[in-house]
């Protein structure tokens, strides 16, 4: 029996599952938006704006979820500042410590890009803010840094789970990879959903759909590798959690892929695929977090 079965559960529950999911969406959306802006076409700009408009509110909710989950929410700032010395609190080998800083800095970038989009749309009439939009150098810097931090936010949550001693979480080193890929697939799905309603170009949506399909294949492989890497510990999923994980593989990955590849035309049920991807991403995190909590 793995030594991880002799440990106690931290009781990270719905708030943390929601954070893992929303953090992935915030970071993933920002990352995709930045790459779309850099390598896409000018018609993609509405989708890019949409992603930046999603990222900031999402990361704000993330901060709230994490704070509310603390045993002493009024001490949330202890993550960033040493309470006794008032010096910055940074521990390079603690994913939660570095993650807190990444969340703060990403929030800053997401905020700047958010207000830049508001200025671009004329909702915030202050021209200097337009410099925060690429191709202005400051805009390039903000979005490049934000994209890297967003990617970090999308993946570090899995690494954080691995850097414990809990069953499942600490019995594999592939959770960060899996969460990161899942963040990309769910973010692309969210942009497809909202973009289709919110004026995204058809060409841009198709590019996102192509990307989502390839990332979903990768996600399926990552989850299969994750289960294999657990070895005998994977036996703990021979229950309802295993069924849910199978549901993620079939309903959250397989079915959306099938719908994508067999799509005859964009019919009225086009939204089912991306909605399933989002549901699959949330369920994946539920399975990983809750199945260990009960052991």
């Amino acid at each position: 029996m793995s030594s991880t079965f002799f440990t106690a559960a931290p009781h990270w529950r719905w708030l943390i599952v929601a954070y893992f999911f929303l953090g992935g969406l915030a970071g993933g959306s920002y990352f995709l938006a930045t790459l779309m802006d850099l390598f896409g076409k000018s018609e993609d700009r509405p989708l890019v704006r949409l992603a930046y408009l999603i990222a900031f509110p999402a990361v704000c909710v993330c901060g709230l979820l994490l704070t509310v989950d603390l045993g002493r929410p009024e001490r949330f700032w202890h993550m960033l500042v040493q309470a006794q010395t008032f010096r910055p609190m940074i521990k390079a080998y603690s994913p939660m410590s570095i993650g807190s800083w990444a969340l703060l800095l990403f929030s800053g970038c997401a905020f700047l890009s958010f207000v830049a989009v508001l200025a671009e749309r004329g909702w915030l009439p202050w021209p200097p803010l337009l410099r925060l939009n690429p191709p202005a150098p400051l805009g390039r810097l903000v979005t490049a840094v934000g994209a890297l931090l967003g990617l970090y936010l999308a993946g570090y949550t899995g690494v954080l789970l691995a850097v414990t001693n809990r069953p499942v979480w600490a019995d594999t080193t592939l959770l960060g990879l899996t969460f990161l890929i899942s963040a990309a697939s769910t973010s692309a799905a969210l942009l497809i959903l909202f973009g289709s309603f919110g004026g995204g170009s058809r060409d841009g949506i198709r590019a996102l759909e192509r990307l989502d399909a390839s990332v979903l294949v990768l996600e399926g492989l990552a989850i299969a590798a994750l289960v294999a890497s657990l070895g005998r510990v994977a036996m703990v999923w021979l229950n309802g959690w295993g069924l849910l994980l199978a549901g993620v593989m079939l309903g959250g990955i397989g079915l959306p892929l099938l719908l994508h590849w067999r799509r005859p035309s964009r019919d009225s049920r086009w939204w089912i695929g991306p909605a399933l991807v989002l549901l699959g991403g949330l369920t994946l995190r539920m399975v990983v977090v809750f199945s260990s909590d009960g052991l």
Partner: peptide, 9 residues
């Protein structure tokens, strides 16, 4: 301590 519970796991 702010009760993040990372140490527990």
């Amino acid at each position: 301590c702010n009760g993040c519970r990372d140490c527990i796991g």
